[in-house]
Each structure stands twice: as structure tokens, then as C-alpha cells.
Amino acid sequence: MIKIAIVDDHSLFRQSLRFLLEQNEGLKIVAEAENGQEFLDVLAKNNGIPDIAIVDIEMPVMTGIDLNEHLQNLYPGIKVIILTMHYQERIIASLMRNGVVAFLAKNCDKEELFQTIQQVFDHGFYINKYILDILKNAKKLRNDNLKNALAIPVDLSKREQEILILICREFSNQEMANQLFISVRTVEGHRNNLLLKIGCRNTAGLVVFAIKYGIFDIGA
């Protein structure tokens, strides 16, 4: 059972989304809120932590961007899916470097909604074709030198690039160790070094970086 929270300031949309999600027997709605601060208040009551939070960007009191920052610091186990009508490469890349694991358009169909939730739960991130195209078509894509989140040049070793590609292919640490004939501890060390060098919080941020600089094509 995947536990879901919905955070959106439009009551009708929130109620409709809940009704839709509850049609899937594998999903359970454990929290609702109309803004980021209300959701943090709900979490503080300790009534159960969701696996996934589906969050709108534009909300009063506390936006989805600000809420994500609080969740990454206070509840890093909650995977954040942004549900929005506005796609900008800069915002998408920034949010994914800062812990957001997927994006969905508010007019997506239910199959894509369910697929995204399942992929996030199973693999920790999901990049759909629309987001992939935005990242691949960004002006700075493949011609720039590698730079981290602070625009500082990054030098990745051959092994780190191999690890990064396998991360993008959704290999587990054990599978990467078997593939490269190294220990799981060594894989974990490379993964942690990548997170530090690139300046992102999780796997989704690493994947965004790899796509942005042409290290990996998730559609290939």
C-alpha cells in the first residue's frame, strides 16, 4: 500500500484527485492540505508519514517550492511529486536538484498519474517524456563544460561517469557492484561523491545532471 498526501489550494481539484487516486486499491490517501504550512502542521501531529506527497507549486501561505525545502530537511523520506501547469527548465532542474523526484501536468491522464506514482515508489524518481524533452532542448545542454548546482566546474572520473550512467538505468547498488566488479561499499562511496560534486540531494538530481550534459539519454 502506497501512502499518499495531496497538497493543493484548490478544494475541488484536491477532492477530485483524491477520488481518482482512491480508485486504485494500491494507494491510500493519508493526508490533505491546502498549502505548505498546513501540510507541515499535519505532519507535526504525527498521524502517519506518507510515502509520496503530490504538491502544487503555486499556493498561498507557503508555496510548493518552499514546502519542498522544508520536507527535504525535516522529512527526507517523503518523495515529492510536483503537480503543475507551468514547466520551465530552470525551475525543473532546480527543484530536482533539491529533492523533487517527478513532475506531472495537471491535465495528465490517470494512467500517467498512476505510472508516475508507482515508478517513484519503486525507483525513487520518474522523468516523463515531456520533462525529458524540456531538459534535452535547454539552451545550455551539451556544449557547456560540466558545472554543479553552484555553476562551479565539475570533473567526473571515468568510474564516476560509469556509476552515474548505471544510476540513470535504475541499477541498484548491488547490481552496479556486480556490473563493475567492485564492492557495494565502493559503489556507495562513488554515489555519495557524485551527490557532493554535483550538488543535488538524491537520484533524481543526478539523472537531471546526466541528461542536461549529455552523459545519458534516458530515451535511448
Rank of each mutant, 00 (worst) to 15 (best):
G36M: 00
G214F: 11
K28N: 14
D217F: 09
F209C: 07
L71P: 04
Q115I: 13
F19W: 12
Q174C: 03
N47W: 07
K3I: 08
N148P: 03
A220C: 10
L194I: 07
C108A: 10
Y213V: 12
V30S: 03
Q161T: 13
P153L: 03
R201I: 13
N193G: 07
N202L: 05
R159Q: 08
P76Q: 11
E34Y: 11
F39K: 01
H10G: 04
Q37Y: 10
K136P: 00
G189N: 15
A177I: 09
G99H: 07
N68E: 03
R14E: 07
H86V: 12
L194Y: 00
L95W: 02
I65C: 00
T186W: 05
C168R: 01
M176R: 05
L194D: 01
V207N: 02
R18K: 15
L150S: 12
P76I: 07
D122H: 13
A220S: 12
V120G: 04
Q88D: 15
I92Q: 09
F121G: 00
R169A: 04
L21N: 01
I57R: 05
T186C: 06
E188L: 13
K139F: 12
Y75M: 02
E111S: 15
I127G: 08
N98G: 08
I2V: 13
Q115D: 12
Q115T: 15
E160F: 04
H123Y: 10
I131K: 11
E170R: 15
N24E: 15
E111Y: 14
K140G: 14
K110R: 13
N68A: 04
I127K: 00
S157C: 04
F103A: 01
R191F: 12
T116S: 09
T116R: 07
M96S: 05
S157Y: 00
D9P: 00
V120P: 00
K147N: 01
D8H: 08
F216M: 13
G219S: 14
P50A: 01
D56E: 04
G64D: 02
N128Y: 10
N178S: 13
R142L: 11
R169T: 06
L141E: 12
F209E: 13
I152T: 14
K129W: 10
N145I: 14
P76S: 11
R191I: 14
L95F: 03
V61Y: 01
K110P: 05
I82P: 00
